[in-house]
Simulated scan of single mutants.
Amino acid sequence: MADLTLSFDPGASLTKVIYELGNEETIRLLLMEPEMIQLPQSSIESYLVNRQGVGQARPENEAWVQCAGESECQVVGFLARQFLASPRLNRLKYESTLHKVLAAVGAIAQSSGLPNRFSLALVTPLPYGEYRNHPQLKAHLQKALKDFRFRGQRFKVKLESFNCLPEGAGLALIQCQQNGVEWFQRQAIAVLMFGHRNTTALIFERGKMTAGHTTNLGFHQLVQQAIERTSGQELVSLTAAIYEAGTELTPNNPVLQSLVKSHNPDNQVVELKQLIGAIATARVEYWRRLQEWLDAVLPRTITQVVLSGGAAMYLYQELEDYFPSTPTYWGMDLQHQIEQILGLDYRSCQSGKESLSFRLVDGFGLFLKFRATQSAV
């Protein structure tokens, strides 16, 4: 068995890593911001000098990596956000995954006290539209892991085992495990993954995947439409506020009030009204576009729908109304299991904890199935 086994989900709004050390039986969680930026070594040196040893950040919150032969560094996560990096939504996910994996592996190694040389078993999902690129991803990872530096420390990691599945496959595996193979073979199941960057539909009929579809209609489309209809809003804070506000688009909502930039009381009222209208309109447009896409890709023979991804929870009522007579599975039972196993206490906020556990469901399903195959070897 590998020294480190992990499920790596490179989400466009949050990198989610579920892992287990080879000498333990404790499943752990690592979260990192999605931003990444390439900088010269001198930028890191300047940052370290200016920091002057004040504070002691965890490795994942102060992460930069450098592959063998590279002269510059890739800054990842929270530190990249401090350098005003972007999430790179326009890039293929499998290309941006490489350095994020190195950063996560390095952060876990440093915080867990792993040696400079160790073995890794890795499973990761990709959007269905990029799934055919998984051989390239594996080759790039094998090469990069052999010799890289994380925060200046050199690591040589052997990729002992690798698997890649389309986003949403973890949920399909869970359904099969929970209900049995015979049940799974009798169903026509649609697994819908509503993410920040895109939305994916996987169709399973008679026990196998028969179709897959991906669209760029991710949650970021809603946020972008709201930004274009308002003034002075910032992407990260607006994204979080829209999600947290949900359907509570009222002037009394403190989450929306916190977004107001104006200092003049009269202007504040006008700005808040404009903001609420922009979000409400963007939400309607976003759902209408998704609805048309669902109409086009979903067969009428579907007997069950599996829903996942942060944007699915945001659109909970719209999706329930869209499938009035088809059973929907939201993985609530698995969410409770995730919360117990990982000990989630997301900033002591119940809604935040539930949201995070829901976003972890697919990756957790992949991890459990992948770990079982590793144990059987």
Rank of each mutant, 00 (worst) to 15 (best):
W287P: 01
Y329S: 11
S325F: 01
L290V: 01
W293H: 07
D321S: 12
S355Q: 12
Q350F: 15
L356K: 12
A296Q: 11
G343F: 11
E292A: 13
D345H: 07
G309V: 04
L342M: 07
W293C: 05
I302H: 05
E339F: 14
H336K: 15
K353D: 12
L356G: 08
L319K: 02
Y322C: 03
R289L: 07
Q335Y: 04
C349Y: 09
C349Q: 13
F323R: 00
W293T: 00
M313P: 08
S351T: 12
W293V: 02
Q335G: 09
L319E: 01
L344W: 07
S308K: 09
L319R: 02
C349A: 14
Y346H: 11
Y346S: 07
A296H: 10
S357P: 09
S357G: 10
D333Y: 14
R289A: 07
I341F: 10
L342G: 05
E339N: 14
V297W: 05
L307A: 04
L307T: 04
V297G: 05
Y346D: 07
L315T: 00
W293M: 03
K353F: 14
V305G: 02
G352N: 09
Y346W: 11
L290W: 03
W330T: 00
S308I: 09
C349D: 14
E318G: 02
W330C: 01
A311T: 01
T301S: 14
T328E: 00
Y329R: 13
Q350W: 14
C349S: 13
F323T: 01
A311M: 03
W293L: 07
A312V: 04
G331W: 04
M313N: 13
K353Q: 15
P324T: 05
R300S: 11
R347V: 11
S348K: 13
S357A: 13
S351E: 10
R289Q: 10
S308P: 10
P327M: 02
E292K: 13
R300T: 09
V297L: 05
G310A: 08
D295C: 05
Q340E: 15
L315A: 02
L319H: 00
D321Q: 14
S325D: 05
E320C: 12
Q340H: 14
E318W: 04
M313W: 12
T326F: 00
K353E: 14
M313Q: 14
D295H: 08
A296T: 06
L294G: 00
Q337N: 11
L290R: 03
T301M: 12
G331Q: 06
S357E: 02
A312M: 04
P327T: 05
S351L: 15
L344N: 07
S348Y: 15
I302F: 05
E354I: 14
V306L: 11
D345L: 08
T303N: 11
H336G: 12
S348F: 15
L334M: 10
G310F: 08
